[in-house]
């Protein structure tokens, strides 16, 4: 474990907590893409499938973190699609998730480190996570704005994988550890946030709201 991975995971936890708080406190999921949250839930379930296959004692934090990610993302989907369904902005959350899931699944079957079920699921989860934020960014571009709290969520969500890139550089240099698939997907994922990061740093930090087109 290194500082980059630690802060990356903390940033990821913060993002999940910010979104849950926003929906729970405002009792509304306006401005939140349910499809992105569904895709994230699929990512966690397919990536941490080992938790279900052979029950592991929850002695180490990693297992606990995996369970937190899975339960929090499923609970977020429950809030969006059931509890606060009336506030779900379905018309603007219109990016076709199939256009993300099918290519990720296909690519996972073509480019992977080992052709076995668990590894393919892990690879699918990595590829899907790289593009899972697209429906959310698409929704913001359709509505033309993002609530400040949603911007903070996106900043934390984007920072998590950006910090993981620093973690991979660290591990390459000190542990000569390389996980090419995760690195390439992580770089793509972070690049997708660049436009948002620019808007966040130039606007939200100064107390303004993000309004598109910028």
């Amino acid at each position: 474990m290194n500082i980059f991975r630690l802060f990356g995971d903390l940033s990821h936890l913060a993002a999940i907590a910010i979104l849950l708080l926003k929906i729970w406190k405002t009792r509304s999921c306006a401005g939140v893409s349910g499809k992105t949250q569904l895709l994230f839930a699929v990512c966690f379930i397919t990536r941490y499938i080992d938790l279900f296959l052979h029950f592991v004692s929850l002695y180490n934090t990693e297992k606990v973190m995996k369970l937190i990610y899975i339960s929090a993302s499923v609970f977020t989907c429950y809030l969006i699609f059931f509890k606060f369904k009336a506030t779900y902005d379905g018309n603007h959350d219109s990016m076709r998730a199939e256009f993300l899931i099918v290519p990720a699944a296909g690519l996972a079957c073509l480019i992977n480190t080992k052709f076995d079920a668990i590894e393919i699921l892990w690879t699918f989860s990595i590829y899907l996570e790289a593009v899972a934020i697209l429906p959310q960014l698409f929704l913001i571009s359709k509505t033309g704005e993002a609530e400040t709290i949603t911007s903070h969520y996106l900043f934390a969500q984007g920072s998590y994988r950006a910090l993981y890139i620093l973690n991979w550089i660290y591990r390459y240099h000190y542990e000569s550890h390389v996980d090419t698939i995760a690195i390439v997907a992580g770089v793509v994922q972070t690049i997708l946030y660049c436009d948002f990061f620019y808007l966040y740093i130039t606007k939200v930090v100064k107390g303004q709201k993000i309004v598109l087109p910028a």
Partner: peptide, 10 residues
Amino acid sequence: SPADEKHDEL
């Protein structure tokens, strides 16, 4: 060994 091939990150 498969151990270090295992993906050890979240």
